[in-house]
Design a protein around this nucleic acid. Structure first.
Lengths: 192, 192
DNA sequence: GTCTATACAGCGATAGAC
DNA sequence: GTCTATCGCTGTATAGAC
């Protein structure tokens, strides 16, 4: 297989395994088995485990930016925020099983005191900045970052409890509640 | 040292290390070093790592129940809920460094597919049931569990982002917002 | 670019002396 | 009740054949 393909295959499987089992738990052998190559070959592509981690974080960042970019056309800012909230529904099966890929990684790296913990937070920033821009465009000039953090906070909270209780109805209820909150905020802004 | 004392010392140090570094990362050697005993002696008290985990979860459960019981005297239900919300302020230093002890453990055990993952969720149930009882006593008969889950969800979300961003102002802002939400809910109930 | 072989540290766990 | 010694396994990582 070509160098590029094998490398991307490794990153994709590592991404999945880090999400489903955690970064520390996942061994080189696990990833090599998933890619169906030997451990020896593995080291041709990545010298250390931290190198794979960095590559996985970079891939996650690129994936999210691509998703957000796809929402830029034919959508109003509040429709975009709603699309973000509804990720909780779209990805509910995986979230109930493994939580939020970004939140759980950031927490794990923080506890490990891992050098890449800052890169994991940069993943949060992708959504924080994007959400902040949507709120800004809606007219919440001064409060745009606070509101972005609030939406991010609630999606993290829903993911956390959805994982613990594996409860779809809970997710649906909280998504509806968050959308109602959004409508009320927008209305109270325009009512002024 | 007496058997009982050493055992409780081990549980206390394991509790701290599991919280600060995670369950999997913490080795027998780490705990033994913290307690200042040898690994060999360690096994006199606990035969397997899962035994320590169970003991730690039991201790956490007892600690939380004791805290909630102390709030039972001289407090109205809404004052009790407020006391729960303000844990985020009281424990802000540790939460910013390591997240919520219950949420992060539940998430980790779920990813490890660990046999004790259900016991970790039982820790959530302590707060869920207790919050539900407070809301029920306030008069939210049918919605009491939903509201308990909502408060739990938001405290999880705040803890998650507070850990990522190490941001005290964010915690204070969201605690105030959650208290305002509580007041509004109580008022709209009594207004009916 | 992929493989085998191997080094070495640390893990959970056990046996037995004191 | 605490210790030393040791086992078997798995982890990351390296060297070198093909």
């Amino acid at each position: 297989m070509a160098r590029r393909q094998t490398r991307e295959h490794i990153i994709a499987e590592a991404d999945r395994l880090f999400y489903e089992s955690g970064f520390e738990t996942t061994s080189f052998a696990d990833i090599a088995a998933a890619v169906a190559i030997t451990r020896g070959n593995f080291y041709y592509h990545f010298k250390t485990k931290d190198e794979i981690l960095s590559a996985v974080i970079k891939k996650r960042m690129a994936d999210r930016l691509k998703m957000l970019e796809a929402w830029e056309t034919d959508r109003t800012p509040s429709e975009r925020i709603r699309a973000f909230i509804e990720i909780l529904i779209t990805n509910q099966t995986k979230i109930r099983a493994f939580g939020c890929p970004i939140g759980t990684l950031a927490t794990e790296l923080k506890k490990l005191n891992h050098a890449a913990r800052g890169e994991a937070v940069a993943l949060f920033d992708v959504f924080r900045d994007w959400l902040g821009r949507q709120f800004f465009d809606l007219g919440f000039k001064a409060r745009s970052d606070d509101l972005a953090m609030h939406v991010l906070m609630r999606s993290q909270g829903v993911a956390s409890l959805a994982t613990a209780y594996n409860d779809l109805k809970f997710i649906q209820r909280e998504v509806e509640d968050l959308c109602r909150w959004l409508d009320a905020e927008v209305q109270s802004l325009n009512g002024k």
